[in-house]
Nucleic acid binder design. Structure first.
Length: 585
DNA sequence: ATTCCACCTG
DNA sequence: CAGGTGGAAT
């Protein structure tokens, strides 16, 4: 076969070293954001008492109520160090990792146990006066409001709304939900109510501080008052338990089957994990609703991605199953549910990481014989997995995180945020690697700007950019090694005319290259790449034939030539969900 | 002084 | 494939 002259249609782009505009400045603050995620103390449970005339009839009662509230608040407070501490720790970790970047991808911090079983309060006595009962009745009603509020909290739109109306006295729910507050529950939701907590009036804050030492004051109370207090406390606790239980029962009537499915598919993630049909539905509704909460954590802007607008708006009807299942843990306070909660978190971390290993699949699959396509498939699967949640032009990872948030729990919301943040920071997953490899067929020397353009779902920072540049450096390394090897082979085979050297699809060289960049042959290697490869091969052939390889830098001229022969990368690669199509068709 | 890159190594 | 390094270009 007579190879044609290899004059390529070189839409050659001069390789330009474009400085990576550091998005650092954007990212660093975001890391710190994490630390600030839960800045507020927990005692800020706003009180509605002043607005509730029923409580004003007697100052004594009011004072008692304040104390009871303090107790309740204390219950709410106890778990507090857990979460904010966690968030902060995670944030700083994040920050440190950022500072010490250049590290390879760090493992995602596996979600640790966040539950701390609160003191189990048994209560069976109920002999309060009618007034107390009446008040308890009110409490129950308020708890019902709480139920609704919880339901709403599962959907960001609703949460946003809740925040918006959290001004004391204006919020119809203000002050009501917190009396139903169970500790863990509010650990879960604390972030959402920060603003309302901030709105505590000075008077109330004073009142709160006034009753900071209930134990002392309690002892000084008249016995009748103490009795009343006791009864009130018990009834409160009981009512809270009932109310929350009922909420959860509602939720559990329609258990989030997708979660269990996830649990299973998570174990077999490498194998046959497919997005459940229900996951698909998420992208239509809920997913859109969440990233907004993720965004600020995730790092300031999702860059170029116009996330905010469409996500702001809609309110979505919330099905009961969107209530976090893990709420059961705190409620039931039982080891089993705690365990299930841990499992959920594991699933969460697993899914947010790139595979069961918690690390992107790497060496092994690459070192395996090319025939073992499943390995490459598995390397890609986690990425593909995330695709159903990817809307065009949207950042996929926050969406994924959002989904997890939904089927996970409210409690780790902040952790999910941290996850997503870390995730964004990590940025690159096997799907990106795959995509980069395919892009190598078109561009051997992509500039950082080009990469940014073609990876819209990646939050570029210095580390990410250099990592991706490094990828291409490694790609080139392999490429040139193969070329040199083949050239030398051709020479030793007695070839004399470089024009005879053409890389064909059935050649061994092609096989090696295809195996490296296109494992599984999911992608049809473009002809332009074969032309470049042929040219490269010929250049190596000429150089070696001319004995230039004695020069230590004999390859440099070749590199210079090749670096000018980058082709335009098809626009389709600009889609953040591009390679997905390869596996659908 | 930085940035980029090839090269080497694990 | 990532980390580290040295050289070269800017």
């Amino acid at each position: 076969m007579e190879p044609n002259p290899i004059l390529l249609s070189t839409q050659s782009q001069a390789y330009s070293h474009l400085a990576e505009c550091g998005m650092e400045s954007e990212r660093s603050p975001s890391s710190q954001e994490l630390g600030r995620a839960s800045p507020l103390p927990w005692g800020q449970v706003p009180s509605s008492s002043l607005a509730d005339p029923g409580w004003l009839w007697d100052e004594h009662i009011q004072a008692k109520r304040a104390r009871v509230e303090t107790i309740i608040r204390g219950i709410c407070l106890s778990p507090r160090p857990l979460m904010p501490g966690n968030a902060r720790a995670r944030g700083s970790t994040c920050y440190l990792e950022k500072a010490s970047e250049r590290k390879r991808k760090q493992r995602l911090p596996v979600q640790q146990v966040l539950l701390q079983p609160g003191p189990a309060r048994n209560q069976s006595n109920r002999k309060g006066g009618p007034r107390v009962r009446e008040q308890l009745h009110q409490l129950k009603q308020q708890l019902r409001c709480l139920q609704e509020h919880i339901l709403q909290a599962a959907v960001p739109g609703a949460t946003t709304q809740a925040l918006g109306c959290s001004e004391p006295g204006k919020d119809p729910l203000s002050g009501k939900q917190r009396r139903g507050c169970r500790p863990q529950l509010w650990v879960v939701n604390s972030d959402h109510y920060q603003s309302s907590c901030k709105d505590l009036s000075g008077a109330e804050e004073h009142r709160v501080s006034e009753v900071q030492h209930p134990s002392e004051e309690l002892r000084s109370l008249p016995s009748g008052a103490q009795t009343l207090l006791e009864i009130l406390k018990k009834e409160l606790t009981r009512a809270v338990s009932q109310a929350v239980d009922s909420v959860l029962q509602k939720v559990l009537v329609d258990p989030p089957s997708h979660l269990t499915q996830q649990g299973r598919s998570f174990q077999g993630l490498e194998g046959s994990g497919e997005p459940s049909p229900e996951e698909a539905t998420y992208k239509d509704t809920h997913v859109l609703a969440f990233p907004r909460r993720v965004q600020p954590q995730g790092g300031v802007s999702l860059g170029n991605l116009p996330l905010a607008k469409p996500l702001e708006s809609p309110r979505y009807s919330v099905s009961p199953r969107t209530i976090p299942r893990s709420l059961r843990g705190p409620i039931a306070n039982c080891p089993l549910t705690v365990h299930s909660h841990i499992q959920e978190n594991q699933i969460l971390s697993q899914l947010l990481s790139y595979g069961p290993s918690g690390h992107r699949s790497s060496g092994p699959s690459q070192d395996l014989p090319p025939q073992q396509h499943p390995s490459s498939e598995s390397a890609l699967r986690p990425w593909v997995l995330s695709q159903p949640f990817t809307m065009a032009g949207l950042e996929s990872r926050p969406l994924l995180a959002s989904v997890k948030m939904e089927q996970g729990s409210l409690q780790p919301v902040s952790d999910v945020l941290a996850f997503s943040s870390v995730h964004i920071q990590e940025g690159l997953n096997p799907g990106h690697l795959k995509k980069a490899k395919l892009m190598f067929f078109f561009a051997r020397y992509p500039s950082s700007n080009l990469l940014k353009a073609y990876f819209p779902d990646v939050q570029f920072n210095r580390c990410i950019t250099s990592q991706m540049i490094k990828w291409f450096s490694n790609f080139r390394e392999f490429y040139y090694i193969q070329m040199e090897k083949s050239a030398r082979q051709a020479i030793s085979d007695g070839i004399t005319n470089p024009k005879m050297l053409v890389v064909l699809r059935d050649s061994e060289l092609f096989r090696a290259l295809n195996t490296h960049y296109n494992k599984g042959s999911d992608f049809e290697v473009p002809d332009c790449f074969l032309e470049i490869a042929s040219l490269t091969l010929q250049e190596f052939f000429r150089a070696v034939s001319a004995g230039k390889d004695s020069d230590p830098s004999w390859k440099k001229p070749i590199y210079k030539i090749i670096s000018k022969l980058d082709s335009d990368i098809p626009e389709i690669f600009k889609s953040s969900s591009y390679p997905q199509e390869l596996f659908q068709g």
